[in-house]
Design a protein around this nucleic acid. Structure first.
Lengths: 141, 141
DNA sequence: GCTTGACCTAGAGCCGACTCTAGGGCCTAG
DNA sequence: CTAGGCCCTAGAGTCGGCTCTAGGTCAAGC
């Protein structure tokens, strides 16, 4: 599979694929054809797909590289892989917690503004926000 | 309140506070004392606290600035504020969805490795993963 | 009168993660 | 035999979001 095809399949750009390889993010070094062009295997694509999931969940490239190296070393270091994965699991759950808390505040603010906008505008304005409106003021006082 | 005190209370660095002001992230321009030093009000701190929540949930600075400007303009643009907030709400829920999907995969991989490690190691190894182990291989085949 | 410490401005530097450029190779079709 | 398309490398540039530096002001304490 050529780099262009892999770019299409993974959603990563050609630039990014080369960049990842340079950063040591590929489990086995990519094969080359006679002309020196990259030839990707199905496994490479699978691995890259995993990497995009890890990236999408905020794992930094150094951590992915570390995990990649463990996998490259082969069996015997599963404990270490677990450590990396658990660390990331924690990072993601923490981030989801933060997001969820933020979302509460954002939702609350939306309700407040909906209530403000609702007064005078057509539509249902029967369900008041659960707390008194304290939307943002430019000049409080 | 001095910039140092605000830094302590918000968790933002002094540098960042000045940077945010420069970026137009403060609803009302910060007051200065006779010596030209920033004097923050309680409202400023509240606003900054809101901003940290928005930042923590991934709202980009330009969007925060936009929202800030709407608030600065005063009453009358609540619909626009709602648009900004709803947009961000969507962004956050989308991100949480992505994280949740990623977390599923990460959790699955952790279970797989726990199963691998469990064989031969002391401890409970009675609950097998729900799918056959297909942990990462360095050299598949 | 000198030091210390908190603050000021303008602007440079840094970091992570890409993203793009310059300059070139190789193959195929017209 | 040349144009187009896809690929190559090395390295520079970009972007968002800080973070820090240089050089200076001001007030309090010794």
């Amino acid at each position: 599979m050529s780099i262009g095809q892999v770019a299409d399949r993974t959603g990563l750009s050609i630039h990014t694929l080369r960049f990842y390889e340079h950063e040591g993010i590929l489990a086995n070094p990519v094969h080359r054809d006679l002309g020196g062009r990259r030839v990707y295997s199905e496994d490479d694509v699978e691995w890259l797909t995993l990497c995009t999931v890890l990236r999408a969940s905020g794992m930094p490239l150094p951590a992915i590289r570390q995990y990649t190296e463990l996998v490259r070393q082969g069996a015997g270091n599963e404990e270490q892989r677990l450590t990396v994965l658990r660390h990331h699991h924690e990072r993601v759950t923490a981030q989801m917690g933060r997001l969820s808390k933020s979302l509460d505040l954002i939702s609350y603010k939306i309700r407040v503004y909906e209530d403000i906008v609702g007064h005078g505008a057509p539509g249902d304005r029967c369900n008041a926000p659960s707390r008194p409106p304290d939307a943002d003021r430019a000049d409080p006082g």
